[in-house]
């Protein structure tokens, strides 16, 4: 019996999605997204709903919290969150400029 979860009998490659399956991809980053809590509507307006950055992050590296937090271990710095933020609350800063 072929079972893709059994290493002896599997005939195709399958992967169980886990955090860091491809290593710490945060090292690839040139620019890092920095969330300005004074502009993020989730902070400035406690009843507001947004989480657009969380929705758009292709790597699932932004938490659905108030304010949202970026996981810099895996964030590749693509900048999609900064582009998608309707309140201009995310800035892309060059890695060496700030810690």
């Amino acid at each position: 019996m072929v079972n893709s979860r059994d290493p002896k009998s599997t005939i195709a490659a399958v992967q169980h999605p886990t955090v860091g399956e491809a290593g710490k991809t945060g090292t690839w980053r040139t620019f890092r997204p920095v969330i300005d809590e004074n502009k993020c509507i989730l902070v400035t307006s406690p009843k507001a709903r947004c989480h657009t950055c969380w929705m758009f992050c292709p790597e699932g590296n932004i938490s659905k919290t108030r304010p949202p937090r970026v996981n810099y271990d895996y964030c590749k710095g693509c900048g999609i969150c900064a582009q998608s933020c309707p309140h201009d609350a995310i800035a892309m800063r060059k890695e060496e400029d700030e810690p």
């Binding site: 893709s4 979860r5 195709a12 490659a13 399958v14 992967q15 169980h16 999605p17 399956e21 491809a22």
Partner: peptide, 8 residues
């Protein structure tokens, strides 16, 4: 318990 097929 979803999986990805054909990862690297």
């Amino acid at each position: 318990d979803p999986v990805g097929v054909n990862p690297v």
